[in-house]
């Protein structure tokens, strides 16, 4: 669907050039919700904007639906952009247009006849749940409602790709969830490919199917969300994920059990049917104390995290940990490691 081939984008600066995106090659499949995560300044927004050519790649090729789009200009570029919706962190609605007029704008831009426009706007208002706000001005709406208008505007011309540029970063957690649900719903209902830029790993966990992690303009890791989150390979990815999880234990707990005895177990929901801990205790003469535990839903798959202390002879403890490791997704040893 979308294929980046050796994409680089650089901006001229006072002293030399700023390489915002560095030689990125990436494929995004049709109908996916694809996350692009990274710290601010990682180049994810710039990369996203090469898809609708709001940003022109300095080198490399962008293919969308098999067609190279880098060289589109003028009328062909405008026609192409009508099929690609984009929503923004700060919504970017016209303050002097009503909700209806904001949503109608892309339809007018695509020369949709007036009669059809009204019908389409009504459909979109129903889709985003704002039928009763159609004659309001954006200033009267909440952040979540403004983003809903943004989504309706982005989808007006039946876009098959929706770009989300930090679309939930200006919203509170509750509103974020409702907007993400709406996006997921749109993805399932219409099969629209959604590419989401975010610095919040939780957003990725909630709705993305695949994810690419960007750092300093390059993609450092990518794959299925469940794989990247549960078994991050890259140091930066690990840091990004751990920062969001925050498993820091109180120091007196660590002192009482001993730093080295504390382990973090990550397991898939499907592993939970086996009595793993119980087996580990029975066959190795160890005690296991549970210190912390929670279950995350990564793209609707339950992923558990358990922090326990394994007490016993060193040899027994090692055997127990090896047994647990063989039965779960991942085990990290030592409280200071996570």
């Amino acid at each position: 669907m979308i294929q980046f081939e050796n994409i680089s984008v650089s901006f001229p600066q006072k002293n030399g050039e700023l390489h915002a995106v560095n030689n990125v090659t990436l494929h995004i499949g049709k109908g996916q919700i694809y996350g692009l995560v990274g710290a601010s300044g990682a180049g994810k927004s710039t990369l996203l904007r090469t898809i609708n050519l709001l940003e022109q790649p300095t080198s490399g090729k962008v293919f969308v639906n098999g067609e190279m789009i880098n060289h589109l200009r003028g009328e062909r570029l405008r026609r192409y952009r009508q099929n690609i919706g984009i929503i923004f962190q700060h919504f970017n609605l016209a303050a002097n247009k009503t909700v209806r007029k904001n949503i109608e704008f892309p339809l007018s831009a695509a020369n949709v006849p007036k009669g059809q426009r009204k019908k389409r706007v009504d459909e979109l208002l129903d889709l985003v749940g704002l039928r009763d706000k159609s004659e309001e001005y954006p200033a009267k709406l909440s952040g979540g409602q403004k983003q809903r208008v943004g989504i309706a505007r982005a989808l007006a011309n039946n876009a098959n790709i929706l770009l989300c540029d930090e679309a939930t970063s200006a919203l509170d957690p509750e509103t974020t969830t409702s907007i993400l649900k709406l996006l997921e719903n749109i993805n399932q209902k219409y099969g629209i490919t959604i590419i989401m830029i975010t610095h919040e790993i939780d957003v990725v966990k909630m709705i993305c199917h695949e994810v690419a992690v960007m750092k300093d303009g390059s993609v450092v890791e990518h794959g299925k969300v469940i794989d990247v989150i549960s078994k991050p390979q890259n140091e930066f990815t690990k840091k990004l994920i751990y920062n969001s999880e925050n498993y820091e234990l109180p120091s007196d707990i660590i002192a009482r059990f001993g730093e080295k005895s504390i382990i973090k177990i990550t397991y898939l929901g499907s592993d939970a049917s086996e009595p793993i801990l119980s087996n580990a205790i029975k066959s190795n003469h160890v005690d296991i104390s549970i210190l912390h535990g929670k279950i995350d839903y990564i793209n609707h798959i339950p992923v558990g995290t358990l922090i326990v202390s394994v007490q016993g002879e060193q040899r027994d403890a090692e055997n127990a940990i090896d047994y647990i490791r063989s039965k779960t997704l991942r085990v990290e040893v030592g409280a200071n490691e996570f």
């Binding site: 609708n52 709001l54 570029l77 405008r78 026609r79 192409y80 952009r81 009508q82 690609i84 984009i86 923004f88 700060h90 970017n92 609605l93 016209a94 303050a95 704008f105 892309p106 007018s108 831009a109 695509a110 943004g150 505007r153 007006a156 011309n157």
Partner: peptide
């Protein structure tokens, strides 16, 4: 005028005159 609003309009595929 907020540049983002103009950019959003441009991203809709609207002609600059429009």
């Amino acid at each position: 005028v907020d540049n983002g609003v103009l950019e959003a309009a441009s991203a809709c595929g609207a002609h600059p005159i429009m």
